[in-house]
Amino acid sequence: MSIHVAITRRVRPGSEAEFEERLSHFARRSLDVKGTQGVQMLHPAPGAKHPEYGILRTFATAQDRDAFYASALYLEWEKEIAHLTDGAPDFRDLHGLEAWFRQPDAPRPPRWKMALATWAGVYPTSLLLGMVLAPQLHSLPKPLAALIISGCMVVCLTWLVMPAVTKLMHSWLHPSE
C-alpha cells in the first residue's frame, strides 16, 4: 500500500512566484527518486493573507518516504527555499478515508463511488463485529460497549478492510486507467 504525505508550507508575502517556480522545478526532479510515485501541488487562493502551499507526495513504502526526506536532493531544496518560507514545513501522513481513495496516477473517484465503496467495507465489518463482540460485551454499559466496538471497527477498516476493498474495486473506482 502506498504511503501518502501532506506537507504545508507558509510562503513569505511577495515570494510566491519565486517559490512556485522553484517548487515546480524541484517537483519534476524529485520524481526520479526511487520509490516516489507522485507529487501534487496545491496553490493558495489568490490574495490569501498568509499564502500556504500544499504538497501531496506518494511513496511506495515508508522506507522510500524516509529516504527521500533524508536525501541530499531534499535537504538542498530546503536550504534553497529557506529565505522564501516562514518556519518549518508541516508534515502529515495521510491515513484512513483521506488516503483510501488516493492514487498517484489517477483522479479521485466521484464521492458517490467513495461512499458506496466505504459502505461495502463498513456493512460487513459492522455485522461481523456485532456478532463476535456484542455478545462478549453485553454486561458492560451500552456506551462503553459501543466505544469498544467502534474502536475495533476503525482499526479493522483502516488497516484491513478498506485497503482490501479499494484494491478489489480499483477498476470500478478508477475506470480511466
Rank of each mutant, 00 (worst) to 15 (best):
V165N: 01
D105V: 02
G121V: 00
L31G: 14
R29P: 06
Y74I: 07
R10T: 14
L97I: 05
M169D: 00
T158P: 07
E18P: 04
Q63Y: 05
L147F: 08
P163D: 10
K142L: 08
S171T: 12
K113L: 08
W100T: 05
H4N: 14
T85F: 01
P124A: 06
R57S: 13
W77L: 09
D105K: 03
R22T: 09
V122F: 09
A48P: 00
W112V: 02
S171E: 12
I3C: 09
H83L: 12
Y123M: 03
P141C: 07
P124G: 08
T118P: 01
L137W: 02
K34H: 12
V155M: 10
D90T: 07
D93G: 14
S24K: 10
R111M: 11
R12Q: 07
L42H: 01
I55V: 15
P51V: 06
I55N: 10
Y53W: 14
E21G: 09
Q37V: 05
S171W: 08
I149W: 04
W112E: 08
H25G: 10
S150G: 08
F19N: 11
A88Y: 05
A72N: 08
G87Q: 01
K142D: 13
T36H: 12
G47W: 00
P13S: 12
H174A: 08
H95L: 14
M153V: 04
L140Y: 14
E80L: 13
V154A: 13
G54K: 00
R111D: 09
H25P: 05
G130H: 01
A45E: 04
M162G: 06
S30A: 14
G121H: 00
D86R: 03
W112L: 08
V132A: 14
L94C: 10
K79D: 15
C152E: 11
R65K: 12
F59E: 10
G54M: 09
D105H: 08
W172M: 00
T125N: 03
Q37G: 09
S139G: 08
E52Q: 10
L84Q: 15
G54W: 02
L116G: 04
R65L: 11
V161R: 01
H43I: 07
R92A: 15
E21V: 12
L73G: 07
A117K: 00
R22Y: 03
V154F: 04
P135Y: 00
I148N: 00
R102V: 15
I149K: 01
P124S: 02
R111P: 06
Q136Y: 03
L137C: 13
T58C: 15
L133G: 03
R57Q: 13
P135T: 09
R10Y: 05
G47Q: 03
F59L: 01
E21A: 15
A120L: 05
A106L: 14
A62V: 09
P124K: 03
M41F: 09
A45F: 03
D105W: 05
A145F: 02
I148T: 01
G35W: 01
R108C: 15
A48I: 02
W172E: 06
A145I: 04
A60R: 03
A48S: 11
A45P: 03
L56R: 09
A145N: 11
V122M: 10
M131S: 06
R10G: 07
G151H: 05
R65E: 11
G121A: 05
W119L: 13
L147W: 10
Q63K: 05
P107Q: 09
A82R: 14
